[in-house]
Design a protein around this nucleic acid. Structure first.
Lengths: 340, 340
DNA sequence: TTGAAAGCGCTACCAT
DNA sequence: ATGGTAGCGCTTTCAA
């Protein structure tokens, strides 16, 4: 293993001082164009790659950002959201030679410790705050730690810079679509109410239904899971005045709902229209293919990363809005049954 | 933002030299028990957290390991495997204060560049080589880069240390299970043949079938995807001598297969028994619940991380074998139909 | 047992 | 425009 080429080697070879090399390579003023060229050439010739560690220690930067995923150890299959989200982050930070440090915290309280350690070790220059909860303790924590952070799909009044994709328009369009199909009893399968995006989606559904003059149908919990969707269907489809359409908080629970409804002998969408939320790949292929509201995890990741890097650079960033999630009509929604 | 507490502060406060502090805090010999205690106490009192950057620069360690996930940008929903795998890695490395750097490389050739950058930046001390392909170029690359690496589910003769979970026993048990149920025409839905685990599973299936004295049934591609499973079912179930049972390379394609078979009017498992591979959560809930061979991503991640840390420490590690993947009989497999 | 000091590789400031 | 040099915070010899 040959010794690493350092800035000293470049300086010596180019016949200049290391400070000139540093300035030249970082596009800082104070070097003549001529010397800069020579230095760059020498650096290339020698295959010089500045040491991240040296830069980190000196420049007080980790050149990395952190994402803490809060998942139960038992349910450690990552949400479909994360693939795109992380892909978007990467797409952005890679161009600036940053890296992503991923942490998975099994226990709920453990998550906060991860942020503390990340900060104590100065392992990252900033973090993403996603899957925000109501009164999320992380907000206070990052402030206390002095850790730059950006929120993802935060509620209004969120004290930190945040990127948001509105769900309201998509949900409104979905409800309008259902109403147009003749549905009058539209139920909702909610997610876990500690998450603000869960609360927000439900509120959007309620508003949308109400604003068409209808009374919101029954609401049951679906827990964002397939199993939750199954039991939600059992509950709703057993009702006396059962709904003719149902909006689910995410695609996974919608898939469970459809499976259980079919199992109970109902036709989808003949007897019951079911819509999901997220726009996961699978929804394209299942039968019936799933009507959903498609979000943009990749775009969100990209913008959040861009924002985080700016915040790290000390800029005060205005919030960013991603174009709203859009309704995707497929086969799981159809005309309301004539009678019931 | 108060200035960070450094080793100098601790040394001064404890009335010793910084080298003594370093030795004491790292459990190195050369400090009396008495001084060590005093130093530890002072460090705690001051809330001293050693700077990762200082340690990195001096100790030539990044205290991080890397995982490059190779995914198409369009299919950026992470494989269910990764959740558990990453969880296992974390569980292991967290105890040693290492962190995981995750990269997602959109393009195929880009993946190799990620390893190069990771190595050039000395951003990580080692990497995981997973989803190994036949003649995988990464093997030569990490050797050339001098980057410590461990393989995950590598083939025999793999030149680097590797952790493996045998699939053969599970697949053999699965085939035995099907044969016992009276199946004689057992087909296979393969994954993408560039992956060695894909090749390996198919070979295991073939061996298992052959060793029971039967002739292996038809093999079609399922691409590891739900959509692939759909088309595999179209192909196989349209055959004149169609199989009565089918083993799929993974759960996702099995789900697609089941959906399409049902759509074509076949009963699962009445007309066709379908088995998956992986043991993803969803398989528990779908109808019929899925017979599968359950792997241990978390355990694999844990052992791979443990091995990688050892390799980084310069130890020569023997390969590790995880207990074999086990057959999980559920509802998607049943007695072979009497006639056809 | 203890401590001084030399790195590690860079950035940034201050002379020249 | 250039170069010298003092950090950054730690580990690791090597003397004392």
């Amino acid at each position: 293993m040959p010794r690493r080429v350092t800035i000293v080697d470049v300086a010596r070879r180019a016949g200049v001082s290391i400070s000139s090399v540093s300035s030249a390579l970082n596009d800082r003023p104070g070097v003549s164009e001529e010397t800069r060229k020579r230095i760059v050439a020498t650096a290339n010739e020698l295959g010089f790659v500045p040491s991240l560690r040296g830069r980190s220690l000196s420049g007080r930067r980790a050149f990395a950002v952190g994402l803490v995923v809060h998942r139960d150890p038992d349910v450690l299959e990552l949400d479909p959201f994360f693939g795109g989200f992380i892909g978007g982050i990467e797409e952005c930070i890679d161009a600036r030679a940053y890296a992503l440090v991923l942490q998975i915290s099994a226990s709920s309280d453990g998550a906060l410790d991860r942020y503390r350690r990340l900060a104590a070790d100065r392992r990252v220059d900033g973090v993403f705050l996603n899957e925000l909860e109501v009164d999320d303790p992380r907000v206070g924590l990052v402030e206390e730690l002095g850790l730059p952070a950006v929120g993802v799909n935060a509620e209004a009044g969120f004290p930190l810079p945040a990127v948001r994709q509105s769900h309201d328009e998509g949900i409104r369009a979905l409800v309008a679509h259902l109403v147009e199909l003749g549905h009058r009893r539209i139920a909702y399968v909610r997610g876990r109410s500690e998450f603000i995006h869960s609360v927000r989606r439900e509120a959007a559904w309620r508003d949308a239904v109400t604003s068409t003059g209808l009374v919101p149908g029954p609401v049951v919990s679906g827990d964002f899971t397939y199993a939750g969707g199954l039991s939600a269907a059992s509950a709703l489809m057993g009702l006396h005045d059962r709904p003719t359409a149902v909006c689910c908080a995410n695609d996974l629970s919608a898939m469970g709902f459809i499976a259980q409804a079919q199992h109970m002998g109902f036709d989808v969408p003949g007897d019951i229209s079911v819509a999901g939320f997220d726009g996961i790949q699978l929804g394209t292929y299942v039968r019936p293919s799933m009507t959903t509201v498609q979000t943009s995890p990749r775009r969100i990741g990209f913008e959040a990363a861009k924002m985080l890097l700016s915040v790290i650079d000390g800029e005060t960033e205005p919030d960013v809005r991603i174009p709203p999630a859009e309704l995707l009509v497929r086969e799981s929604t159809g005309p309301a049954p004539a009678e019931i």
